[in-house]
Structures are given as structure tokens and as C-alpha cells.
Design a protein around this nucleic acid. Structure first.
Lengths: 185, 185
DNA sequence: GTCTATAGGCCGATAGAC
DNA sequence: GTCTATCGGCCTATAGAC
């Protein structure tokens, strides 16, 4: 989470646990398996938080705002976890996986797609209802995800940071996203 | 560019050149120096392309649209280079640099700040002129950069991709960004 | 200027004591 | 279940031949 997958050794992980490699390899067969497990846990959390918001009966505008707001809060509250999620793509892109790992990786990429589709569907519905301007929902979702996931790059909690500051950031991001896609009033 | 900094060996770099390690180490004292040089070249290119657009005499709206459009094109035309740029942040975040490298890294981070400030200044000017809604220019710039830089994660050129497809993507992104910040008409 | 050869170190993974 | 010890391999970087 702190140094990236490739740059982190199992010894470092063990140190953080106050243990040695032996313990880590008792629970995980390989470094990749460990990464996959963390990735799966993180994505499961994200989906369980975001799905109810995406599929509620409220109008597309409200759903998108609550999704973006909650998404931003997720990044700020679980920054290391969200960083891992973004590293998952890198691992996927590099193609540096062995054959048996590829199935697990495929499962994780499927979860990523589910997550992204929550945004795509809300955008498509909003375009159809006239709430949102005519846009390609898939490109729109990529852009929304970009604005929000990019927080993992620049956001760093300050020691004296108040809950109000985080609220303000989440609100700004959600407003940005809503304005980007809504139909001109 | 393809596998990430940590996961790429100098042997791999040499292979791509049809050479061996010896040649690489004749030109660069260390792997980090090589990375820094690529990073500097990439950022210099970005700044030289984007600065004229950001500082032209046109209204903030036009400048922002041309910046976003060109930025998107930069990502699509120089995908590996832009990926390297985003990895620079990771290296910065991890703090895994030795003392002598820290000065060079600081220089690169200064160039990153200059690049980001191009957006911050245009946004601030647009807010002051009433072209853009009341927003925090720094947060707005982060969001804009997120939407655009996130392209390095999802964009992958298709073999049969036409220039029109790229134009459409760049236009969609630029429209997204403009709508996100402009004042309600 | 480019190569081969290799030093020196770290890392992923395993074996086996306790 | 956790440890120590270690293997084998890869990687950064250097030395020296050509």
C-alpha cells in the first residue's frame, strides 16, 4: 500500500506485522496471492458501499451525487486500500502474471467492471431521462472515475484535518462531477 | 513505460535497445538517473505544448477547452511517456530515494507543479471573470487533471483506430471538463 | 563505446526445528 | 503456528577486455 507491489518485499510486510516471512507464507502461498486477497477485500467493500446508492429509486442526479460524494469519502477514509485498487490495474496492464494467477486476476477485473458499470448505468439512465446531457456513458464514467480515483495520487490527510475539511472536499468533487454531466438548466 | 519502474530491469531496457547492460550504464550512472531523465524529457514536452495554450490572450473558457483537448491528445499520442509521468508521483510518494537523488526529484516535482498551475491559473481567472462557477481552483485543477490523466489507465489504442475516434475522445473529455467548471448559462 | 563476466545484495519461496 | 536458516535466482552496478 505504501510503496507499491513490486517495490514491497515480504520481509517488509512481515516487519509491519512484527513477524517474519514464515508467518506470511503460512497463510499465503505467494506474494501475488496476498496481493489478490487484499485487492478482493477492497473491491468487495467498495461494491457493498456503492451498489445501494447506485441502484436506489432516486433520480439519476441524486444518485450520481451521492455516489461521487461517498466515493470521495471512501478514498479519504481508506486511502491505502484505494491505492492498492489502483495498483491492480498496473499489474493487469503489465501482463506479468503466470497462467494460474490469470484466473484470479480475471475475477478481480470483473469486479472492477461491475464497479465501473454502476456509474455507466446511472449516467445512461440520466441521459435517457434528460437529466444529463447527451454523452457517451462509458466515456463519462471513465472521466468521473478519473476525477475521483486521482485523489489517491494527491490526497494526503493532514494531522490536524477536520471532518469539515473532508466534507468540503467530497462536496466539491461531487459538484464537479454533477456539473460535468448534467443537462444545461 | 510498459511494466513500471520497479518491475523493469536494466536488462529489459538493454534488450529493447538490442544491447546489453554495459551500454546503458555507460550513459547513465544508475537506474534512477535514467528514470529521472525520461521523466524530465516528458515533462519538458508537456510544458512546451501546454504553456502557450494556457497563457494565450483568449478567454478562460477557450483556453481551458484547448488545454484539455490537447492534453487528451498528448496522452493518446504519447501514452508510454505519459504513463512514466504518472509513475513519477508514485516514486515520490514512496519516499524510496537516496539523498543525492532527492534534489533531482525536487526539480521534477517543481515541473509537475508548474504544469498543474497552468490549470489552476486558468480556473482562477475564469472564476474571477464569472466565466466559471465559484470553485476552489486548486481542487478544480486536481479534478481536471484526474479526468485527463486517468486516461493513461484505461486508454489503449486499437490497431484500426482512426484519427476521428481520437478526436471524438478528446472532444468528449474537453466537453466534460468545461461543463464541470463553467458558470450556469 | 560496447561487450562479457562477475561481484554483492536482496528477494521469493521452502525446509525443518520447536 | 511461528520461527530460523537457507536455496536459487534475479537485479543493480562495476571491472576490465576489446
Amino acid at each position: 500500500m505504501a510503496h507499491g507491489y513490486a517495490a514491497t518485499s515480504i520481509d517488509t510486510v512481515a516487519d509491519a506485522l512484527g513477524a517474519t516471512k514464515g508467518r506470511v507464507y503460512y497463510y499465503y502461498r505467494s506474494k501475488t496471492d496476498l496481493f489478490f486477497d487484499i485487492h478482493r477485500q477492497a473491491m468487495t467493500m467498495n461494491l457493498s458501499v456503492m451498489r445501494p446508492l447506485a441502484t436506489s429509486a432516486r433520480p439519476p442526479r441524486d444518485r450520481l451525487v451521492s455516489m461521487a460524494r461517498t466515493h470521495a469519502m471512501l478514498v479519504m477514509d481508506h486511502l491505502p486500500t484505494q491505492r492498492v485498487l489502483n495498483q491492480g490495474v498496473e499489474l493487469h496492464l503489465s501482463g506479468r502474471t503466470t497462467a494460474p494467477q490469470r484466473d484470479v486476476l480475471a475475477e478481480l477485473m470483473a469486479m472492477r467492471s461491475q464497479f465501473e458499470r454502476l456509474y455507466v448505468d446511472v449516467l445512461a439512465e440520466g441521459v435517457a431521462s434528460g437529466d444529463f446531457r447527451a454523452l457517451d456513458p462509458r466515456l463519462g464514467a471513465k472521466s468521473v472515475l478519473g476525477a475521483l480515483n486521482w485523489m489517491t495520487v494527491w490526497y494526503s490527510p493532514r494531522p490536524d484535518e477536520s471532518a469539515e475539511t473532508r466534507d468540503r472536499i467530497a462536496d466539491e468533487l461531487a459538484t464537479f462531477v454533477l456539473h460535468a454531466v448534467r443537462a444545461a438548466p
